[in-house]
């Protein structure tokens, strides 16, 4: 058969395309469970981290997560966990950053006076600038932070973090005002929802 003929070209292209798509469909099918499992593990770790619950590895996280309950407080969906007789809450948050949606979990005490912690699951901020919200030092600032008037203030000092638990302030990211402002807006929106719901419950 003439390799430059139209019929050969069409048949060849169709066969090659089919073969490769088949290969990809197989690869996708084989890994789909693993990918779903990974996402599940990530969610579990994030919820526990936001509540300040410590764990060693994924296995222990999964074990601890079995004790996490999904509850509703005044119409607001929350994760709840009991540690040594003390209740811990966490809520999923999402909002627009500079480039895309920022998503993660925010932990809070049941009386709504302190945040327990913060995680960032997804973001599209610029790497090295706004993207630094996924670094440890930024998130660690939210550990046991006391709210002032139900809010946290985003400051722009030296960008090294504010670890004073009673300051009510979070040090924003140097050179990333947009992301810092967006983060402040998202967190305070969700804190307002949380304090309203929890305040109503108390």
């Amino acid at each position: 058969m003439d390799k430059q003929s139209f019929a050969y070209t069409v048949i060849f292209t169709a066969v090659v395309t089919f073969a490769f798509v088949l290969l990809l469909a197989m690869a996708n099918e084989l890994t789909i469970e693993q990918i779903e499992f990974n996402q599940e593990v990530r969610l579990q770790r994030s919820v526990l981290q936001a509540m300040g619950v410590e764990f060693q590895d994924d296995e222990q996280a999964a074990e601890l997560f079995e004790r996490v309950e999904q509850i509703e407080v005044n119409g607001l969906g929350l994760y709840s966990y009991e540690r040594d007789g003390e209740q811990l809450y966490a809520k999923e948050y999402a909002g627009s950053g500079v480039w895309g949606t920022i998503r993660g979990h925010l932990g809070i005490t049941p009386d709504g006076t302190r945040t327990l912690g913060l995680t960032v699951l997804e973001h599209e901020e610029t790497p090295g600038l706004g993207g630094r919200i996924d670094e440890g030092w930024f998130q660690e600032q939210f550990r046991n932070k006391r709210l002032v008037d139900g809010r946290l203030e985003m400051t722009s000092r030296d960008g090294t973090g504010d670890f004073d638990e009673d300051s009510g302030e979070i040090d924003g990211i140097t050179g990333a005002t947009g992301t810092s402002d967006a983060m402040a807006r998202i967190i305070n929106d969700h804190l307002q929802q949380l304090t309203q719901a929890l305040g109503g419950a108390a």
Partner: peptide, 18 residues
């Protein structure tokens, strides 16, 4: 051909080093 191998690599990375 290139795109197919890249997708395979992408799927593997997603599954094993998420």
């Amino acid at each position: 051909i290139i795109a197919s191998y890249v997708i395979v690599v992408d799927i593997i990375l997603r599954a094993y080093v998420p």
